[in-house]
Design a protein around this nucleic acid. Structure first.
Lengths: 143, 143
DNA sequence: AAATGTTGTAACTATAATGATTACAACAAA
DNA sequence: TTTGTTGTAATCATTATAGTTACAACATTT
């Protein structure tokens, strides 16, 4: 299974808010850039709002950043949209048979390794800020 | 979303084949240790077989290892059961609007970073062999 | 050769998450 | 007051997962 596109959509949203100042960042406008339905965008923005990353002018239209892009890591975004529940990237099989020595002990052995693996993935996200991403993005746009 | 439990089930299967030599490794027997249906086990074993990790005595009953555990990394197992299609851990949103500068360029900027993140996760799996895991497992069992 | 037990698959089911869509009340700004 | 937007509920189609039943093909044992 894959990690929900909510994550990449959220990154797109934040980038667009920052890069395009010619339009108010309404859900319709963002949806036309992402190429999806405005309600999908509103749902993701709702999650970013709960995480304190953006604010929204209710009724009036338009989302805006509440933090500097330097202060937002990709991991913050990833967590904000609950792309994966914390510490739950790998699905363990449930209730192995504890009567069996292997069944009784496999979980704890695996957990350690899988956590390391997941942590490594998240660490890469933690090391990239939205600022860096948008800088790269603008470089591409201007190229 | 989470990575399919096929992966941890597969690790359980390989471990059991190695650790428990008192029984032939039939799907029923393995299923009773994993605590699931025998057909689920057969399906995973089928994938491990395609990947060349195990052989199965058709009709007679019993799976057996085709490689030394030192030669099987967790990444091999992960790939064998197609827990995640190669290079596809993160779901990108499809068809962003190329009329929009952000939509036109966000994908390529994101791809690089997400690939790094995914590679970091897989590298941890690649660095652990089934041998190490089973050694840890036996240590727990004997403790 | 026959009986037994296992494998490999197909088919079906239930469950859950995703993403798209419609609808509409609440609200802000002009 | 009008207009346009947000927040949210409700519904739907699609997809993957995991469990289950059923059964033909096959190997081993007697």
């Amino acid at each position: 299974m894959k990690i929900s596109s909510r994550f990449t959509v959220a990154v797109h949203i934040l980038s667009l808010i920052k890069v395009d100042s010619s339009h108010p960042s309404t859900s319709e406008w963002i949806a036309s850039s992402v190429n999806t339905n405005a309600v999908v965008i509103r749902r993701v923005i709702g999650m970013l709002k709960k995480a304190g990353l953006v604010g929204v002018k209710a009724g009036a239209g338009g989302a805006y950043l509440l933090k500097d892009l330097e202060e937002i890591t990709l991991l913050d975004v990833y967590r904000a949209v609950a792309a994966v529940e914390e510490g739950e990237l790998f699905q363990m099989h449930e209730n192995p048979n504890v009567e069996c020595p292997v069944g009784a002990n496999i979980q704890s052995v695996l957990e350690l390794i899988l956590k390391r693996s997941q942590d490594a993935m998240e660490q890469v996200l933690a090391d990239v800020t939205m600022k860096e991403l948008v800088t790269d993005l603008i470089a591409k746009i201007d190229a």
